[in-house]
Design a protein around this nucleic acid. Structure first.
Lengths: 210, 210
DNA sequence: TAGATTGTTAATCGATTAACAATC
DNA sequence: TAGATTGTTAATCGATTAACAATC
């Protein structure tokens, strides 16, 4: 069925990577077909919700059969935009920035860290897994001369907005923000936040209920 | 008003750390009082929602006045359980585990990394910012002999469930999971996930809409 | 074919927003 | 007091679940 992308709610969108994870896992375990019911049991969702979710993008299943795991995985692969190669740069070459650069897991889905940037002279000139650390002053030139699809911000929160403004000025449309602050952006720029302290406080909050 | 903790929805709970962030920021900028309306403008929520959220925990405001920033911040501090000291250990001393150990930002809210654990002999015996890296074989003994409130799992996904089972066996009730897998736990054990790849794929998904 | 399971519509549930009386 | 703003109830909206006809 044709892939028609209507409005997709935040809730549905957030479940897509999870489907992708489970389907990738099942495929590598040689599972060929799955019903919404069985998938619901594995994932802790309802079968109804799963069918509703997939039908936001068109029907991928077959009555009486269920879903072909490889096919469905491929569809979600496409939906998530993992067919594209995405270069990203990491701003802030501290521990977290270096951890992102060192992590190779994203590469097999086409996400490649091309460079890091920092203000610290002791970091500038280093190379992390072959990825160079440049002076932050070279940021704009670098973006202008290279294909950069995304920027990860791993600076202290005090610098995050300033950095964001700068890269947005360079035409960047997608920011992966690790700084503990909400970044203000124009409507055509996407920010995906990873607020580690929010996550930790949530864990702490729930510990109180035990 | 008395602090009565009824059922708090996931949605409300997820907003609490954000309130805490904004209130901390406002307090340090010397702002003394705030109305739900003004807070809503700063945070991009509705005033109604903010009042509903706070009233899950009892009323913290005053008609005609609004909310006292310091007081409200303190209330949320308590709600999040940040009055308690929480020791945690990090399992998996790779880049991400080391980044967590190196990050000092959690400490001022009472979260202290006490030890790291790994299987890699080249890492065992090291010390990260004074925090020792132990052999994973010492995990159970360490937990038995020390106060450990939380465990962060930063291992490859293949090892995560096994590690989780082990620490749950030692009585740990709170897991901060960074491995790209959903961990199965008994109902009295809390898992807070930080799935970086899910987050990245979400960003990629939304880039397709631009 | 009969059984299974989808795609999709309808019903329910929960979260957000609006409204307003209470009150500082 | 009059004005402002909360706490709270009622209305709306959206997301989840249930149901079932379509069909493989």
């Amino acid at each position: 069925m044709a892939r028609e992308k209507n409005y997709v709610s935040e809730a549905v969108m957030r479940r897509m990577p999870k489907y992708y994870r489970y389907l990738t896992d099942m495929e590598s375990n040689g599972i060929e077909r799955i019903s919404s019911k069985e998938l619901s049991q594995r994932m802790g969702l309802t079968a109804s919700q799963i069918r509703q979710d997939f039908n936001c993008f068109g029907g991928f299943g077959q009555q009486g059969y269920g879903y072909n795991v490889s096919e469905l995985r491929q569809e979600i692969h496409n939906i998530l935009g993992l067919t594209n190669d995405n270069n990203f740069i990491v701003i802030g070459a501290g521990n977290l920035g270096q951890a992102l650069a060192n992590y190779t897991g994203f590469e097999k889905e086409g996400f490649t860290v091309k460079a890091l940037f920092d203000i610290n002279p002791r970091l500038i000139g280093l190379s992390i897994r072959g990825i160079p650390v440049y002076d932050i002053d070279e940021l704009e030139t670098h973006i202008a001369r290279n294909q950069v699809h995304m920027v990860a911000i791993c600076t202290p929160k005090e610098k995050a907005q300033e950095i964001a403004d700068k890269v947005i000025g360079c035409g960047i449309k997608a920011i992966w923000n690790f700084a503990a602050i909400d970044i203000a952006t124009p409507p055509d720029v996407i920010v995906e936040n990873v607020h580690l302290s929010d996550s930790l406080y949530t864990l702490s909050f729930r510990m109180n209920d035990l």
